[in-house]
Each structure stands twice: as structure tokens, then as C-alpha cells.
Design a protein around this nucleic acid. Sequence first.
DNA 1: ACGATGCTTCGATAGCGATCGAAGTATGGA
DNA 2: TCCATACTTCGATCGCTATCGAAGCATCGT
Lengths: 228, 228
Amino acid sequence: MNEGPNIAQIASLIGDPARANMLAALTGGRALTATELAAIGGITLQTASSHLSKLEAGGLLAQRKQGRHRYFALADEAAARLIETMMGFASSRGHLRYRPGPKDPALRKARVCYDHLAGDFGVRMLDSFVCHGEIVSDGENLSVTDKGRAQLDAFGIDLSSLASNRRPLCKSCLDWSERRSHLAGTLGKALLGHMFDQGWARRSEESRAVIFTPEGERKFLLQFPIDP
Amino acid sequence: MNEGPNIAQIASLIGDPARANMLAALTGGRALTATELAAIGGITLQTASSHLSKLEAGGLLAQRKQGRHRYFALADEAAARLIETMMGFASSRGHLRYRPGPKDPALRKARVCYDHLAGDFGVRMLDSFVCHGEIVSDGENLSVTDKGRAQLDAFGIDLSSLASNRRPLCKSCLDWSERRSHLAGTLGKALLGHMFDQGWARRSEESRAVIFTPEGERKFLLQFPIDP
DNA sequence: ACGATGCTTCGATAGCGATCGAAGTATGGA
DNA sequence: TCCATACTTCGATCGCTATCGAAGCATCGT
């Protein structure tokens, strides 16, 4: 017994409702201040501060001081994937906590996951890349083919500028609403950023939803078709 | 706030050290009795019983009565994947709890994950399938090609008999020691079972390790080669 | 320099849950 | 039938931690 990594430690960090709410909110990719996170968790600032320092010590969060504000964000993409994985499992077991509202369908359609596109549109985009042979997958890691490189170049994304030693270019990330994978990594981030730049879509102010313009949606479906 | 699945509930289930130890032990795929699990968790039978009923209510465990024994096992493969994912994250953050010993290298080399092969050998096997075009991956799910079907047939595994409506044939599962994917699903199970049947390897009695015979290891490396 | 804002630290409280002893239920064997 | 084994349920205890008030520290604006 007692072999291997200590999962109880991080699980208990996520296991507190206030902390879980904060983490879920940070899955939206935006860095939030301690005051904002306290409101999200439904607790006072003092309590939130205690929680946040524990989460940081546990390697789930990273903080950045900026003036008198302190911004908190998920430590990295692996942390975001862990949270999304747990969401997927929880929803598959019926551990739901829905407060059904108009935002829900929008979230399922398209939302931000850390810094890339998730939801129905995110899954479709990766499907399109794969079924056209622009991205291939060897197990967990994805890689871009020459055909994909040319396609992305035409779309306006320069792969060579995305190279990073700290973070993989492509990574698959399990989608909790679709239960399939979407594209993460620096390429996933760049693609979402490009869509924002092109005016195809914008972020919702109060949730993780990504709202496409009618024109943007048309162009998205044209750019990432799915053939049988 | 408060949207989406309730991750705090399952996270707090895993967050208790005694429960985490039990779950980690069950990742070995064997069903264990309440008494055995109590010993693993380092608690009395009464406490263990309370824990086990909570884990079952949370959808993580399934129990099977057999005479006066009650066998507990992970509910399904998704539960096993969740635990392995958490192990991967925990070890990447240095949340280790090693009791270094001779078993450790054996576990990294080859071990059981639920009912399929994990560790260095598990990752190698999937790599071999993929780099020979016998299995292709479209995002999360893997699928066997015609070439792969023939290869497996020659190896002695009949794919058509593995079809199941309850569980996918192929699934990728993240390996906590290698941080790469290995092959899960009914095919992963069948492959490991076949190796046991052929006498290539056997299970360790006291841990999750899979111990290959020298002859079995030679045949394994020959059967699942990796070319550049 | 001074107050205001954002956040952390300290200290005390309160409540939840892990734990175990004791008693109760079910199954198997003699 | 009677005892032993395997497990669950009940009840009480105890420790841990989430929580918040109050005070302290840092930064910004003026």
C-alpha cells in the first residue's frame, strides 16, 4: 500500500465546494482577482485568500501580482485538463448541479477552455482537421501534417512562430459537454485568438461562452467542414 | 457561478487518504473484499464499510456479493482513467509519497491498469500499433485499421468477438508514470489476457506489477517493434 | 502625507466527518 | 441448531478545517 503519487492531497484541494467553484470559474482562462474569486465561491475575502494560497501551494494555481491586485489563474494546461476531466466524469455519473438557464445551450455550443475553443464547435474543429488528414494523432499527442501546415498558413496562422519549449503545439483535451476531444496547446490558443481577431466571435462577459456572429459562424462552418 | 457538473462531490470522495488508498489499490483491476480494503486503507472494518458505501453512492465503485464476501471494484474504465489521470497530475506536481523500494522500477516497466497493460510496456505497445498504421486515432477515440485487424488475427485475437455495446473496443488511457497514452478498452483487456495465456507474463501477487519472463519479454519486443 | 483599496495573517468558533466500539444482520460450515 | 465469519448500522467522540472578525501590510491616487 501507499505507493505512487499522493492523489488524496490534490483531490481534497478540489473537494471543497468553494475551491471547486473557483477552479471551475478559472477554467474560463481569464485570470481573476482574489475579490472576484471570493464572490464566485460565495465566501469572504479572508477565507478566499486562505483557499487560494492552498491551491497555489498544491500546484493548481499560479498568481501574478499587478499593482495592488493579485491575479490568479490555473497553473497550466494540465491543471485545466484535470478540472475538465473531473467535470466529464461528474456529469457522466449524474452529479449535476444545473441551474438551467439560457446560458446553458450557448456554453454547450462554444465556450473557452483555458485558452482554446471547446464545446460543439471545438470538437467539430478538431474533427475537421483529422478527417482531412491535416492533424494526425499518435496516442495522446497530436501532430500537424504538411498538408495541415499549408492549410493553416493559408488561414493566417504561422506554425513556426508558435513553437515553444514549455508547452506542446497540439494537445487533445477532453470536452465535458461533448465527451469527445477538442484541440488544445499553443495551436488551439492561436486558432481561437485568430477567430477573435477576425471578428468571427467574441467572449461573453459573464460566462465562458463564446458568441459567434452570424457571419462568423457561417465562415467557421465553411472553414472547418466535415465530410463523411 | 454554480453552473455545470458538481466536481467537489467526487473530488472530496477521492480526497480522503483512506479512500484514495483503496481506489489506488483497485486500479490494479482486481476486485477486493471489504476486509482487504480496510487493511489497505489502514482503518477498521466499520470505517471501511462507511467509506465503501459512500464511494458506491458516488458512482466510483461497484460491488458484487458472493457468498458472505462482498467484492468491490472500480465502477468502470472511466473511473479507472480518472484515478490514473489524478496520479499523473499529482506526480507532475511532485506530490509524491514514495516509499522507494524494489517494486517501483517494476511498476514503471509494466503494470496492470484496471484490466489492461500500462507502464513502459503498455505505452510501447500502443506506439507500435500506431506507427505501423494498425491503429489510428481521431481525437480521443482510437480505431483499428484493416491492417491492424489482420495483424491481431495472426496474433490470435478475434476482434469480432470483442464487440460490446457497453464498452468501446479501443480507448486511450493516460499513463501516470510515462505521461503518455496506452491502450485501454476491450482490446486492451484482450491483449493483456492473451499475454497471460501465452505464459509471457504473470501478475505480481502483492502489487500491480506485471512480471514478464525473459522469453516473454523477448517475444513482446519482437511482436511490438518500434521503427523510426 | 494621507486615506482608500486590495489582500494577508492571526485568532477564535463552529460544524462536519473520520474514526472506532458495540450491537445487529446475513451467510456458511459443522 | 449453533457457532464462526463477513459485513453493516448505530452512537459517541474527537480532530481537522472552513469560516469570519479584527488587525496588519502593501499599493495606488491625490
